[in-house]
Design a protein around this nucleic acid. Structure first.
Lengths: 109, 109
DNA sequence: CTGATTTGTTCTACACTATAGAACATTCTA
DNA sequence: TAGAATGTTCTATAGTGTAGAACAAATCAG
């Protein structure tokens, strides 16, 4: 029984939320890379994204072909209210588990 | 290529850290259940704990048989400095990815 | 018009992780 | 010495994480 979002799901969902109406594969990849300062393969973005959609936390639709220069149509993602609910849940868990960390930390060094 | 701690690893490692010199299977299970307000099976605690040890983020040793009332010897876990380093890393990532969330959130409702 | 270029998505494959709970082990007490 | 108490190990399986090759479609250059 699943407890809550996995970390990649959390990060990707946050990226979609932050990108508002400009969230699609490429921008999401860039965003999560910026957020984490790590390389993310395309698969590491799309596969969890696909799973988030299956679970109802994001929705997607194809954009019109109108582009600047070549390129396939974008598949735009938006967060659903179930997705936001899920983010709130994990956010709360995070607050609880990390509560008091940075201050206590000093004592452990 | 692994990016950072998974969420169960994060939670368990934090529990070990918080429990200081009283971290063993049963207390860790109780602690993570309290932290997350969810049921954790024994396996859901020990298996990741085992992996954390293999990766060098915790260390363990058996306690002396001295107990209050029956029972097997405890296997006491302690966080290593590599473990603390890893916690700091994930803590930083968390701060970045959630930065400004609760205040911005209101606008999305 | 057509082939190269650009931009973007889908597919797939495999190792690793998450989770549950049964089985097992050890110690104490009566 | 049986059984109760406390704790750990084992095992199985579904699901997740990750990389990158393959594919698709739109535009531009000649």
């Amino acid at each position: 029984m699943k407890k809550y979002l996995s970390r990649p799901e959390e990060i990707i969902l946050l990226a979609v939320w932050r990108l508002k109406d400009n969230a699609y594969g490429v921008t999401i990849k860039k965003k999560v890379e910026k957020m984490t300062e790590k390389y993310w393969s395309i698969g590491a973005v799309y596969v969890p994204l696909e799973r988030l959609e299956k679970k109802g936390f994001v929705r997607s639709c194809l954009s019109k072909p109108k582009s600047e220069r070549g390129g396939r149509r974008k598949r735009l993602f938006t967060i659903t209210s179930a997705g936001i609910y899920e983010l709130n849940k994990i956010h709360k868990v995070n607050e609880v588990i990390w509560q008091g960390y940075s201050t206590d930390k000093k004592e452990t060094w």
